[in-house]
Nucleic acid binder design. Structure first.
Lengths: 246, 246
DNA sequence: TTTCAAAAGTGATTTTTATAACAATTTGAA
DNA sequence: TTCAAATTGTTATAAAAATCACTTTTGAAA
């Protein structure tokens, strides 16, 4: 079960499972079955078991998974047992909104420093106690503190230029809110957050439906839904990626 | 070439192609080859040609694609030739940042109204001339103006509840910034924007690299990169989805 | 004209991913 | 003890998607 190539979609699903496991744990649930957890995450239970099987055997047959222990296992796989420090580049509306987004700290991400190249922003105090610093300080801060993650929220025209600086300084992962594909060397990963692409896929679907060009819908209830008699809302995570990684 | 099932990833790539075509057009480029455009979008040129072939034949052999015409074609496929009106639910930091995000209007999306259930927000004037309205007004506004798209940026606990209202009111597509999977009936689509999931995939990769558990890297230059002698930075869009649609 | 290089379109093939199906294990009740 | 129900782990199968490799078309230079 080792050594096999692990689908990118599996990692994304692990993150979703992790989130629901946290909620179960908070609710005092001790044990969960693949069917239950898969239902929460809107995936096929066989998929969930398969996803886990890439990494080992964590359940008890006939019983299910221990919530606390599976949560810990998945967090470990994702590398989330420790805190991750992140630099934010770009203190515009999106950047500032992210600083205040509770989900980041809840998941163990800590914004260490904020940078911008706009003279008007530099030196400004932001909510949360961050002071906007000049891009020139980036390499120093990243190297000194050994930071590996960056959130990139600058105007798209400057995305590549900043990405180069980040990579040069030792950043290993970039969460990119810009609308340009950036190029990074092997060993550095990029994930894109691209709202309008997603909206475009929605408009595509709506347009299809409106023109009567309906998707061939398999109206039958999928077999796995019958494992339990839950209402079917097939909103699978399959193929969700947004990978764009390199 | 019609009637075939169209991969979700194809639609996402169309959106990426569209964006680069816009830039080419703005730069006065008249004609582009599949290799050039594919390089910009970081995909395999055969992939691009195949993506287009689902919808028709738009190029000229030996020549390439007319930029203006292909842009128009793709925009039409995606349903982007008209303006789309959107309601925003949730006037928190993320929601407000989105209102100010230029990419939306550039792509033809117009925020028609903003809603929140927080008494402290309701009635507040936001930059851009929007006044925050109470959730109670949602159904009326959506129905009266025939709005089909919604951006959902409320606290996750309330996501499903609001989604139900949106669906009930006639919304056909939801861009969901909440961290809960929402359930919607067939005919309604959902796209998830989930920052921390993406960060988690970055930490996974970084952790892998750090533990020496490297991905099996195919060090050879992919064949398609040899079509032109460009430097290879394999950051494919393949499998990017974030679909989670229903 | 003829020839050649460029480049689209597409069927065939390969790769990747998801699903199904079932044997193995566990628990608890008869 | 034995049996039945629950539920995992995993192999086999199917589905989906990406890539290749080849054919066709075009335009331009010789």
């Amino acid at each position: 079960m080792r050594k096999e190539k692990i689908p990118a979609a599996t990692i994304i699903r692990l993150s979703v499972y992790q989130r629901y496991l946290k909620r179960l744990l908070a609710n005092g649930v001790k044990v969960v079955s693949s069917s239950e957890l898969a239902y929460e995450a809107s995936v096929n239970p066989a998929q969930l078991r398969k996803d886990l099987s890439y990494f080992g055997r964590f359940g008890v047959r006939g019983v299910g998974y221990d919530v606390a222990s599976l949560l810990n296992t998945i967090s470990g796989i994702l590398g989330l047992l420790d805190e991750w420090r992140v630099v934010l580049v770009g203190a515009g509306p999106i950047g500032q909104a992210l600083l205040r987004h509770p989900q980041f700290s809840r998941q163990g991400y800590v914004f260490e420093a904020v940078f911008d190249f706009d003279e008007n922003h530099i030196g400004k105090q932001l909510e949360g106690g961050h002071t906007v610093r000049a891009i020139e300080d980036l390499p120093k801060v990243i190297k000194e503190r050994g930071i590996q993650l960056a959130v990139l929220a600058v105007p798209s025209e400057r995305a590549q230029e900043i990405a180069d600086v980040l990579v040069e300084s030792g950043i290993k992962g970039i969460l990119n809110f810009c609308t340009t594909r950036i190029r990074v060397p092997r060993g550095v990963s990029v994930q894109y957050v691209d709202f309008t692409i997603l909206l475009d896929t929605l408009t595509y679907k709506i347009s299809q439906n409106n023109t009567g060009n309906k998707e061939p819908v398999s109206s039958a209830k999928p077999k796995w839904a019958r494992e339990h008699s839950w209402p079917v809302v097939q909103s699978n995570i399959q193929r969700q990626g947004v990978s764009l990684t390199s």
